[in-house]
Amino acid sequence: MTQTTTPQLVETDVRLRLFERMVILRRFEKRVYDLFLQGFVKGTSHLSIGQEAIAAGFGEAMRSDDWTFATYRGHAHTLSRGVDMAPVMAELMGRAGGLMAGKGGSMHLTSVEHGMMGSYAIVGAHLPIAVGAAFSAKYRKSGQVAVCFFGDGTTNIGAFHEALNFAAVYRLPVVFVCENNLYMEYTAIHDVTAVEHPAADRAAAYGLERIIVDGNDVSEMYRIAQARLTRARDGYGPSLIEALTYRHNGHSRADPGKYRPDAEVAAWMERDPIPAYRERLEREGVTTQALDAIEERVSIAVDRATESAKASPPPPAEAAYRDVWSDGGWQWRS
């Protein structure tokens, strides 16, 4: 048997799944955008259009009992753990059939049975919480890994630094993934950050490797995810990955993102992860028909999820009073 130093080509079925995951995330988010403009999706929504390769790569590489912790930009991370589109869509519409029966909304998607341990809407809060899950995995020797996704803006809040130090000190199995899309909300991250790479340039402060990857390359994301999950599982402690990417849309809702230079937007649109991967798969011998079939299947699934969500009624009034406490209710008197 010969050893090779070049990376193994990812198996065809994995490559097709990576592609399909990205297509699911893209088409779902595009539909959410339409439904928001049509008034079906209320409140707010933060889309991951353009950033799909990160969620898809990790979703494919993670073990089914690993944990995801995401931000308010969490639709993609929820779907990439295998959660059905219909309950997610219904949740965004505030329907009874929603993933959390309409009680959480777009920014708090959670599906514990899929290892999706929550979407957190206070920047930075979920990093220490992911550390806690990793603490639990280590304490119980379960071999599970917590993966925590966050934006570049998070690297300037205290919880980021507390969590990294804590995870490094106790060598906890957690992978921190900074999705650096170059903008914290409406402000360029480099305008408000002392270093060029907001996550990677801070890694050394916690004794961690400086890792920067192309967040628009799904096969690179899949490989780095595999490598870092394995390392965490083997007891070598946390990793911090900075994945460079770009959101095609604005920060939230109908934000047109006018604060971004046209040339920059155009350059990143050229680097759209999905057409790039599709071309690559075709070059590697995957047939156009096979890829079209995936697109078609996903398209039908998104339509079905939309119809299912629209058909779901609003939550019953009593839902507002459920699950404040572990007894299922809301009473604070005894």
């Binding site: 929550g118 806690g132 603490f135 639990s136 919880a159 507390e162």
Partner: peptide, 12 residues
């Protein structure tokens, strides 16, 4: 924040 975040993640 890390102490209480750890507490929460461990409890979950």
């Amino acid at each position: 924040q890390a102490i209480l975040g750890t507490l929460m993640g461990a409890a979950m």
